[in-house]
Design a protein around this nucleic acid. Structure first.
Lengths: 200, 200
DNA sequence: GTTTAGTTTGACAAAAATGTCAACAAAAAT
DNA sequence: ATTTTTGTTGACATTTTTGTCAAACTAAAC
């Protein structure tokens, strides 16, 4: 069997990704991942040497997949409202797939901060697509096309309204007495609603 | 020493609460908790028999403390806007203290759902303070005092706008190039802004 | 059919985390 | 002062999780 077949390796990654970031079982054991994938646990070591290596790889891959087209959309030169609409759609679809990825990333960043002292090197301000978008929002505000606030609030509102209802889906379903279908319908309605709130 | 002194016990609970739900280190080891508390690890077993017992106790206590006055405020007969204003203030202050409690609760509920099959007993609909509040919102909408949507959206918007910016604080600080003080100022501004958005 | 390289497996080893226990310390009650 | 109860500790045992290895297996190449 001289040709690397990659099937199992890919299957491990996909399963781990699902267990970690779709189901939110961030500290699943290698045995649990192996079971979920229907393979022998040792294969994880064969392909990835250690659990840590697998985890790091999965995080990296999930991030890439999550960001996906978002940055492209934000960097495009569409009119602000249409750009925002597309961004909302793309972003909310990704969220549905990996609801825990963003939570995980946040916790990690917090841990970093807690370990760092004040002496540490300030990160250089690189102009991210978000910053570009922020500038455009600012212009639209001063042009009077969007209600004027601190543009930071615009961004926070945007992400809040998109992300929270998705990551808290089960809690909110319980709280609001809605079943899966009803809640999904609500989530879909929100795409337009969010746009209305932001540009009202 | 016939009288239980409670000092160490309380100290363990407080430290565990902080480690789990303020710092977000949900799977900290007993040794790490003991270190954070500056005590011998065995004392955790002395007071709580097992790690699980401690954890359950801390979860219960944190929930109680978190919910705090919220339910009282929601159940009160204040005018809707003032009620909402107070709720926002109370809730956002609690969030600052235990940013990870709500995330944790969600993950747990998801896990429950994933293990349950469709045959399981439907939970009886108990009229929670949230449901009472929801009814009031509905009335205000039909009276034309609040923009009419599905009241569920009102609730989702409320929680989204409050919770997300708090739990994602470190990520957003990085993304938006803000320091701690700047971000806290933003968070405080939001209390009024959220009210405006909801009742505009 | 044998070789060959990649793949899979179970048994075992090592490490990490949790729990138990007997001994010791400290402070109140007698 | 001595006893008694509570609190604390380190050494050890158990359990859980992870990692290693040699042997078995598979399928293409020779």
């Amino acid at each position: 069997m001289p040709i690397k077949d990659c099937q199992t390796e890919k299957h491990i990654v996909d399963t781990a990704m699902k267990v970690f970031f779709t189901e939110g079982r961030i500290n699943a054991t290698t045995q649990e991942i192996a079971d979920a994938a229907g393979i022998n646990r040792t294969l994880i070591n064969y392909y990835f040497r250690s659990k840590k290596t697998l985890f790091n790889y999965v995080v990296k891959k999930a991030k890439e997949e999550f960001i996906g087209n978002s940055d492209l959309i934000l960097s495009s030169d569409l009119p602000i409202k249409e750009k925002t609409e597309r961004f909302i759609d793309d972003f909310m679809n990704n969220l549905e797939k990996y609801p825990y990825l963003e939570s995980y990333m946040t916790v990690e960043i917090i841990k970093q901060r807690l370990n760092k002292n004040d002496l540490d090197v300030p990160e250089e301000k690189q102009p991210t697509p978000i910053n570009k978008y922020l500038n455009e929002i600012e212009k639209e505000m001063s042009a009077g096309n969007i209600p004027a606030t601190n543009p930071v609030h615009f961004i926070l509102n945007l992400f809040s309204l998109m992300i929270y209802p998705q990551i808290m889906k089960p809690l909110q379903m319980k709280l609001l007495n809605l079943n899966e279908n009803e809640y999904n319908k609500i989530l879909d309605e929100r795409k337009q609603l969010i746009l209305t709130i932001l540009f009202s």
